[in-house]
Design a protein around this nucleic acid. Structure first.
Lengths: 167, 167
DNA sequence: TTCCTAGTTCAGTATATATTGAACGTCTAG
DNA sequence: CTAGACGTTCAATATATACTGAACTAGGAA
């Protein structure tokens, strides 16, 4: 084996390891490991768009799992399908606006917490202010976070627009 | 049963349901359901501090589980133990600065993602800028989020200080 | 039309992890 | 010193859920 292709193989292995690490990170976040592997891999593979079959081969997971998890990532706004001239299959790639999807997901989580705290306050409607204090503080925090993260999302969108005007 | 205690029971049930819902929310976030139940309950129970035994009775979970999960919540900076005069047991309550703990946890997660992207960039060190582009964008996003959330944390701390000067 | 490839769905299985319950250590009260 | 209450730890178990593999659907190609 010539030293060049040997280096290439090494790099390939390292990039697969990178995908695996994203799998582990996703797992810690309560998401399927395979989804994380796909998400990681699509950031480093060549070319940037891959068919389901290529993902199966590269990541060593089943067709079914790739199907389920690409759909999940699509629904989260992180991936999109693209057509490739002369190819029958669907190709997947990272959405250019994927990070907005991530932020939106986070905002949804915070929003659920805020709503839940609010419902709790409903139960304590007629209670004393002292009694409500803990819950009010919680609600206020999540409301704060929700507002600020929406603001952050707008910041990010602004940054992207001024940076790259093409997509 | 007189109508007053009946109302009280209803309220009590509703508050337990509130704790259960926090359990479900925690689960969606990849955390133990019992930890969520405790976190929810300690915001609405009376008094605000509870012994392990009281939590066992109220939430219907085992002693062991309460022990494990109070420790988890403590380690996340959400709960603290307090001593109560004349009582032998440890009492748990929501930390006054619990929400800072929540934000710190989130920041840690983002920071891990940023670090991972950075390691990936290391592998692609000698690759072309086009090849690196996707990863660079990812790294930039998480770096942005990390910086901004730290800023947000400072905002929140400022708000708390000006609001309630006591603790 | 028929054959083949791509992708989805779903029942069954594997796997990870939260929870229980019992045994243990520690402290306090008597 | 002893008895009992409290909290922790850990092995066994229950439970949830991700994953696989096979059956199925749909859409070209020949």
């Amino acid at each position: 084996m010539n030293p060049n292709t040997e280096n290439e193989n090494l790099r390939h292995e390292s990039l697969l390891a990178y995908a695996e690490e994203w799998g582990l990170l996703f797992e810690r976040w309560g998401l399927p490991r395979t989804a994380g592997r796909i998400w990681g891999w699509l950031h480093v593979c060549e070319p940037p768009h891959q068919t389901a079959g290529q993902l199966v081969d590269a990541l060593g997971v089943s067709k079914g799992s790739v199907s389920t998890n690409t759909r999940l990532l699509e629904s989260l706004g992180l991936l999109e399908r693209v057509g490739v001239r002369g190819a029958r299959q669907s190709h997947y790639r990272v959405r250019p606006d994927a990070f907005e999807g991530i932020m939106r997901q986070r905002i949804v989580g915070v929003s659920q917490a805020r709503a839940l705290a609010e419902r709790g306050l409903g139960v304590l409607e007629s209670a004393s202010p002292e009694r409500k204090q803990r819950l009010t503080a919680k609600r206020d925090f999540y409301a704060f976070l929700e507002r600020e993260m929406e603001e952050l999302l707008r910041h990010w969108q602004g940054r992207r627009e001024e940076g790259t005007l093409v997509d």
